[in-house]
């Protein structure tokens, strides 16, 4: 079970993480090429207009003051307004983040559901045909670009078989799941490949552990041995891998959302970069960084729950 002291310590670690995220977000937007104003106002602006806009954005203040203003705004929930669509950034992100989060969550679950049984088969039939076949397939899957996997799935299951919609997001939760199934599968391939490879090795390792022999010597059922003793221990190292992998997955979501026309933050990010919509870029960077650090928090807590030694 989870050790309370560990949870508290891990939560306290989130404070410096968030400070770091704020600093990086602030700096990144100010490092982007071009003047934030010219994209907004076009070419024919007067000096007076520029000065006015700069004052409004606080850009005439010293950097440190700008940073504290930025933090103050963020903490009061004010991420500014989109230059392009003229609505508050937090509302824009609030609309576009859920599809991406559901997509990421579904891909993770699908990836795990695919990887765990296959890792077992590959590990138990190690170096035989089925092992080679599973590993070979994933190797191919891993080497294919995400958009290509997406297009193949789209062509086969949506265009040809018509089992799934060609794109969009739907209206109800069930509808979302249905619409996001193929995109999730697209993303799940690479996650499953990474997880499968890691888990296969971990399972082979654990199968050699003496406590598995001891479990056998106790007369336990093979199923109990495999799940409680082998899988549980093998998962520990794989869960550590899950954090960074899901982070990468979020990156892959950008492309997948374009292929499947999903109104998520991936497309919003691309649109806002083209439009030099700095408040949106800034808001997105901030919220995605927070999401990723929460994912790391979750995987750390899961790992601690799986392995009591982590929490010591």
């Amino acid at each position: 079970m989870l050790n309370l002291g560990f949870v508290v310590r891990r939560l306290l670690q989130m404070i410096p993480t968030f400070v770091f995220i704020l600093v990086v977000t602030f700096v990144i937007v100010r490092l982007l090429p071009g003047d934030p104003l010219s994209a907004q106002a076009g070419d024919r602006v007067t000096d007076a207009q520029v000065a006015h806009a700069q004052a409004e954005l606080g850009l005439d203040q010293p950097m440190l003051v700008q940073f504290f203003l930025f933090v103050k705004h963020v903490l009061s929930g004010d991420l500014g307004r989109s230059y392009v669509v003229q609505i508050p950034v937090w509302r824009l992100i609030g609309q576009r983040l859920p599809p991406t989060l559901i997509l990421t969550a579904m891909s993770t679950i699908l990836g795990i559901l695919i990887a765990v049984p296959l890792a077992f088969v590959a590990a138990l039939r190690r170096d035989r045909v089925s092992d080679a076949a599973i590993r070979g397939t994933f190797q191919v899957g891993l080497s294919m670009p995400v958009f290509y996997i997406g297009l193949v799935l789209l062509t086969v299951f949506s265009a040809q078989l018509r089992w799934f919609p060609v794109g969009g997001y739907g209206d109800s939760m069930a509808d979302h799941v249905y619409h996001l199934f193929l995109p999730s599968l697209t993303l799940a391939v690479s996650l499953a490949a990474v997880l499968m490879r890691n888990l296969r090795t971990a399972i082979i390792d654990v199968l050699n552990a003496e406590y598995v022999d001891f479990a056998r010597a106790k007369g336990l059922m093979p199923r109990v041995i495999m799940i409680r003793h082998v899988l549980r221990n093998a998962l520990i190292s794989s869960v550590a891998l899950l954090g960074p992998t899901i982070g990468t997955l979020l990156g892959g979501a950008v492309i997948t959302e374009s292929v499947f026309a999903i109104p998520g933050v991936g497309r919003l990010m691309i649109d806002s970069i083209y439009g030099r919509d700095y408040p949106v870029i800034q808001g997105l960077t901030l919220s995605l960084a927070v999401v990723v650090s929460l994912i790391f928090l979750a995987t750390d807590l899961i790992q601690a729950a799986l392995d009591p030694r982590v929490a010591q």
């Binding site: 003496e210 406590y211 022999d213 003793h229 549980r232 221990n233 392995d307 009591p308």
Partner: peptide
């Protein structure tokens, strides 16, 4: 029943 030489490795560390 059987017991092993090294209890550290023969006991499951996470249970």
């Amino acid at each position: 029943a059987m017991i092993f030489q090294e209890p550290m490795t023969a006991l499951n560390p996470v249970l």
